[in-house]
């Protein structure tokens, strides 16, 4: 265990540690606490510059109501789901297949393809921007949820393949061999053996991709222009320009944007962290 467990330390250390932890947590979360506090304030507090004192009114729900009534926030949230969920399903499904192919078959181009996926995953978005936008135009999918989803699926396939391939590779190969000897077809090996065994990886990938896509701002800006298909990140950005002086509404909107991934994270924490830290503990 490193560092030495605090329980083995002198009392004074133990007490100061127990004080230090909540204090540092509070400092760490100040930005988020600030925005939460602001989201329950009324306009009065904002104009009076009361940002850190007790809110003079508790208006969270009326602020949220105002956001929903005066802005297309509801559409934005629905769009975010419409973009995120199909992307998660698509990317995970495709990468199960690519991951399986790269993990359990030997062929010449294997490593090359694998590294291509990895390399593509690190590419700066800007180098893809203009061609992807043009391509989406030509397919008639510009400014549609479908167009954005297609790109997201394609791009996320890079990361997901890396993830899945490493996961499947770590599965005992004997399982597949035994099934082959029993005459199970390759497709059935995939469906009946690989998919059930990769469930934890699928769960981890799903939460990760959900968060990545939900929080995507760049591609939403590049491939979407109208409110009808705009996800919440890009929507918030446009409200940011409109609401420069009404921080309480902007805060309420920001919180709405943050809630789904946060819920996702707390529900699926184990998988989320397992996904993010893949490779952090082994060479």
């Amino acid at each position: 265990m490193f560092p030495i467990p605090i329980q083995k330390r002198p009392l004074i250390n133990r007490i100061s540690y127990k004080i230090l932890v909540p204090v540092s947590l509070f400092i760490w979360l100040i930005p988020l606490l600030g925005i939460m506090l602001t989201s329950i304030r009324g306009l009065g507090d904002i104009t009076a510059g009361n940002y850190w004192g007790m809110p003079s009114e508790f208006l969270l729900f009326s602020n949220i109501k105002e956001v929903f009534q005066n802005t297309p926030m509801l559409t934005y949230i629905i769009n975010s789901f419409k973009i995120t969920i199909p992307t998660v399903i698509g990317a995970v499904a495709i990468s199960c297949m690519t991951g399986f192919a790269l993990a359990s078959y030997k062929f010449k181009a294997n490593l090359f393809i694998f590294f291509t996926f990895i390399a593509g995953n690190f590419v700066p978005f800007q180098i893809l921007m203009i061609p992807v936008r043009d391509l989406t135009f030509q397919m008639g999918l510009y400014d549609t949820v479908t167009g954005l989803v297609l790109f997201h699926v394609a791009f996320q396939t890079g990361f997901c393949t890396l993830f899945m391939r490493n996961f499947i590779k770590a599965l005992p190969n004997e399982l597949f061999e035994a099934a082959r000897i029993d005459g199970t077809s390759e497709f059935n090996i995939f469906l009946k053996i690989v998919v059930p065994l990769t469930r934890p990886a699928i769960a981890a990938l799903s939460v990760l991709i959900f968060t990545f896509i939900w929080n995507d701002f760049f591609w939403a800006t590049v491939l979407i222009q109208g409110q009808h298909a705009m996800p919440i990140t890009a929507g918030l950005k446009s409200l940011n320009g409109q609401w420069v002086t009404v921080y309480h509404l902007l805060s309420a909107g920001s919180i709405m944007a943050a809630v789904p991934p946060v819920i996702m994270f707390f529900l699926m924490q184990k998988h989320f962290i397992a996904g993010l830290t893949l490779g952090a503990s082994k060479g």
């Binding site: 297949m97 690519t98 893809l128 391509l135 297609l150 394609a154």
Partner: peptide, 28 residues
Amino acid sequence: QQRLTPWIFLFPGLLLFLVYVIWPIFNS
């Protein structure tokens, strides 16, 4: 099937990746 299966499994992912990631780099 041993030879073909990986390519069948790779096809959708590879196609999307080539169209949306690899080709755009050169096009840019």
